[in-house]
């Protein structure tokens, strides 16, 4: 059967792509951020997951607000990036995992999550930046990726309790897949940040650190927040916490924190990198 071997939280902001494209990793501004990554890369290279389920939000590349899926899942064998409008380099295609994707889609709809199912889906920096962070130089062609896209742009958007439940349902779906596959789950997004309005620039370090703690030990406590709560406490785009919560929903039993690096600011955001392992299901 397929097994989830662990989960990772990471930022996905476009400024990271620019920093990597321009070789700025060791500059004083970026070093404290990038220094967090080697242990996570080592873990990935040692554990060699076959598949990454990646929670992210589209920022206006594939989806526009003419039709905005609440939850969308990719079921393709390949995904492409494209011009996003402001000049981060377009990256090579990302490999998909159609069979497991369809299995998850079937299982989710059965489970009450009426997904938008995508056989073609342009993937933006929300998905590509984390992959390049984990396998620099765009060396992730060997890993199969299943994109799960959550609306974090337009209210109404799914509430934390719902995204947590989505993660739990995906966890069950993976476990019920017959093929022996090792799956890692990425929850990507800025932590506290607000890009728009006179309140632009707020970062709530204390709240971010509390969220990282709770993501390890008591994720259900985070589901008490509404998206408006998150906007108020962590900034208008603080709702991206939903992707981290969804990732955590996929994990079961005792969850162990193997690594953490919180750093703020990068660009306008708080960044929380965390590597988690959980109790593996009985065979």
């Amino acid at each position: 059967m397929a097994n989830i071997i662990g989960g990772i939280t990471t930022s996905h902001i476009p400024a990271i792509a620019n920093a990597m494209a321009n070789g700025l990793e060791d500059t004083p501004y970026w070093k404290p951020f990038f220094d967090g990554y080697p242990p996570v890369r080592d873990w990935l290279n040692e554990k060699k997951p076959d598949v990454i389920i990646l929670f992210y939000n589209d920022h206006g590349l594939e989806f526009f607000i003419d039709k905005k899926p609440t939850f969308a899942i990719g079921v393709a064998d390949e995904y492409h990036n494209a011009d996003e409008g402001w000049g981060i380099p377009t990256i090579p295609p990302v490999t998909g995992e159609s069979d497991l994707s369809w299995h998850i889609a079937n299982s989710l709809v059965e489970d009450g999550f009426d997904m938008t199912i995508c056989q073609e889906m342009k993937v933006d920096h929300g998905l590509t930046v984390p992959l390049n962070l984990m396998w620099p130089g765009h060396n992730y062609g060997h890993v199969k990726v299943i994109p799960v896209c959550i609306n974090c742009e337009q209210h109404p958007m799914p509430q934390p309790k719902r995204t947590f439940a989505l993660g739990q349902a995906i966890g069950r779906a993976v476990q019920s897949f017959d093929d022996d596959l090792k799956v890692a789950v990425f929850g990507t997004g800025g932590m506290s940040h607000q890009l728009d309005g006179e309140r632009a620039g707020i970062i709530n370090r204390e709240f971010d650190l509390m969220c990282l703690d709770k993501l390890v030990s008591d994720p259900e406590d985070l589901t008490k927040y509404s998206n408006f709560d998150l906007a108020e406490i962590a900034g208008a785009q603080g709702v991206e916490l939903n992707m981290l919560i969804a990732m955590r929903g996929c994990l079961i039993g005792d969850v162990k924190e193997l690594h953490r690096n919180y750093h703020a600011p990068i660009s306008n955001t708080g960044s929380g990198l965390m590597l988690l392992e959980h109790t593996m299901p009985e065979k």
Partner: peptide, 18 residues
């Protein structure tokens, strides 16, 4: 806190249906 009631957050323009 912990309510989904719409509220005014100063300096913030939540992107809602309106």
């Amino acid at each position: 806190m912990a309510t989904n009631e719409k509220r005014d957050i100063p300096g913030t323009y939540l992107f809602d249906s309106t």
